[in-house]
């Protein structure tokens, strides 16, 4: 029941509201834009395409584009999320730098491996760091996480199945903390890149954290009926 309560208070998309006019939802996050605003065009092709005479965008107000959005080749949603998570004190340029260098590190290792490998091995090596990042996060997603439930004065850890959204978040969060767990002299972007590669190969700090979580869930499986 608590889970279903939670779902109501998740941020709901504008499209959902628009399509179902009878639906009333308490929106927990605020926005400068009300319902009448349309989304921006975020790709170069769409921007350059000429508007039709009766195109709705001629008559409606349009949201402004985010500073994160760009039409360049290096825009990816997951990478953007990772950058946001590493940002501290609003210093996004620093975070962006770090993530780009980490991905470059990953690419460097893979490309070197590629050039030194034989022709058969070459087809098996993944070179795109963004794909490696996606796979690493997939590998780091926990299938079960614990939740605190108070029963008769006692706080129990109850294993539950997390939503897709929660899984992604935890995977990224653990990746960042695994990247920070390093000796003083090692650079963060190097360590982060190494962690991404490790997670891609099913080893390293991220996978360890996930497996620890699974172990705890296994240990507390008796309480599963409480949820």
């Amino acid at each position: 029941m608590a889970a279903s309560m939670k779902n109501i208070f998740q941020p709901v998309s504008r499209l959902l509201l628009r399509k179902n006019p009878g639906l009333s939802v308490v929106c927990t996050r605020g926005s400068v834009y009300d319902q009448s605003y349309l989304e921006t065009s975020k790709t170069l092709e769409e921007i350059k395409r000429p508007l039709a005479e009766d195109d709705i965008r001629r008559f409606r107000k349009i949201k402004a584009a985010n500073t994160d959005d760009n039409t360049f080749a290096d825009s990816d949603v997951v990478v953007g999320k990772l950058i946001n998570m590493i940002t501290k004190c609003g210093r996004k340029e620093v975070a962006r730098d770090i993530v780009m260098k980490a991905l470059e590190y990953v690419k460097r290792v893979q490309v070197e491996k590629y050039h030194k490998a034989s022709d058969e091995e070459k087809t098996l090596i993944v070179l795109d760091p963004v794909k490696i990042l996606h796979q690493a996060i997939e590998n780091g997603k926990p299938l079960l996480i614990t939740c605190r439930v108070t029963m008769s004065g006692q706080k129990h850890l109850v294993p539950i199945a997390p939503s897709e959204r929660r899984q992604n978040f935890l995977s990224l969060k653990w990746l960042v903390s695994a990247g920070g767990d390093k000796p003083h002299r090692v650079r963060f972007h190097d360590k982060l890149g190494q962690e991404i590669l490790n997670a891609f190969n099913e080893e390293g700090g991220l996978i360890q954290r996930k497996q620890e979580m699974h172990k705890i869930c296994e240990a507390h499986k008796a309480y599963a009926h409480l949820k």
Binding site: S13, E39, S41, T43, E45, E46, E164, R165, N168
Partner: peptide, 14 residues
């Protein structure tokens, strides 16, 4: 890309 940006905007996650 266009399609992904406008049409599928339900909790898109990743």
């Amino acid at each position: 890309c266009v399609k992904d940006n406008i049409v599928t905007s339900l909790p898109a996650c990743f």
